[in-house]
Structures are given as structure tokens and as C-alpha cells.
Design a protein around this nucleic acid. Sequence first.
DNA 1: CCTCGGATCCTT
DNA 2: AGGATCCGAGGT
Length: 216
Amino acid sequence: MTEDTELTTYKKNKEILPNSFFFRPAEIVAPDLIGCKLVRRQANNQLLWGVIVETEAYSQDEPGCHGYKNKTARNETLFGKPGQLYVYLTYGIYHCVNIVTDRENWASGVLLRAIAMPGENERIAAGPGLLAERFGLNRSHDRFKISFKNGLWVAPKKPSIKILEIVNTARVGLSSGKELPLRWYLQPSRSISKRAKGDRPPSSLLAWKPTNCDMP
DNA sequence: CCTCGGATCCTT
DNA sequence: AGGATCCGAGGT
């Protein structure tokens, strides 16, 4: 299949999550995104994609969220319409990519923490900073509305993903709100971020590959 | 204006 | 265990 027909196949098969998917609470959207594909159309119309294997939920009623205290210039996007990106610079070096969720004027979003990409090193996007770098997303993409038309969208998970286990744990790298179980990852993917204690490492026999999610 | 500390990752 | 490197938030 040529790249252009692959691109149009997404549209023809409606392999695009509707915007309404994100108009739900972050703690519902976050586990629901596990197994879905993040797809980016590149300048040459080739598609860059991978399977989302780790997410975290944030919302303004808990202290881990950037919108916990009040609206500022930095976190304003988080209060905006669901279905757009909230991208911020962290530790002065890396970017973190969120998809805004729930409803307008309620700060909430899902942090995309790790993606498995077929044919690439399994650690290429195994963390929020690496993921942002691999997909070429940075502060200029803050407020970016994800859609097929805009060349960045999420494709629904394949039925085959349902046999796999989604593990729920505490979030990673927080000083406040760290106890809340708002992180989810796909077991036994080898592409999740490696920072959480107690994560069950996948055995080499069980290691999960994104190849069973090829189009269509 | 100054200081502090990150939703990280890589190297000792 | 510590450094890279930016910048928003909060205190003086």
C-alpha cells in the first residue's frame, strides 16, 4: 500500500476518534487511550504512528494538576476546549504532551507518557520527553487541535488489544498528588517509562509488539 | 529582583 | 546521585 492510500484509508474506515471522545473525565479517557494509535502526517504525507502504552490523568481538583490553583498564562490551555494539545516545557529541556479533556473551564487532561513504534527501538518513545521529541511536538503545538484535517489524530484501538492487561498505578515524578492511582500502562509492553517502582517488567517471551495493530 | 523546583532523561 | 537548562510561581 502506498503512503497516500494508507492516509486515505484512515479516513475511509473512520479510523479517527471523534472529538467527543475527549469530552469525558480525564480518568476515563486516560485508560481508554491505552492501545489507541497516535498518528501524525508528515510533510511528505508519510505517516508517523505508534501505539499509546502509558498515560496519566490530571484534573484541577487534585494537587498534581497544573490547573490546581488557578489559571495562568502557562496552564491556560488546560482550561480550554477538549481535544487540543497542552504542551509545556519541563526541566528546561523536555516537553510533555497532554490532550485536554472533560469540558471547557475545567482544567483537565491526559499526559501521553509512552508510545510503542513498530520497526523502531522499543525505547524510542518510552517516556513523555522522548515521545514529544520523536513526534516533533513542542511549545509551538500548544493549543493545537488534533484532527485528521490538521494531520495529527488518534485512531481507535483494535479489538485484539482487549486481550491485553491494563495496569493502574500511582503517577510518576510528582511531589504532590503522588499517591493517586491515575497512571495506566499496557502490560506487558517493553516501551513504558521505567521510573515507577513496582512496575512488573515484561518477560521476553510475553513482550508485546505493536505489530498486531497494523492498518486496518 | 531573587530563589526554588519541577508531570525528565542521561551519565557517573 | 547529580547535572543539564528553562521559566513560571511566589516571596522580598
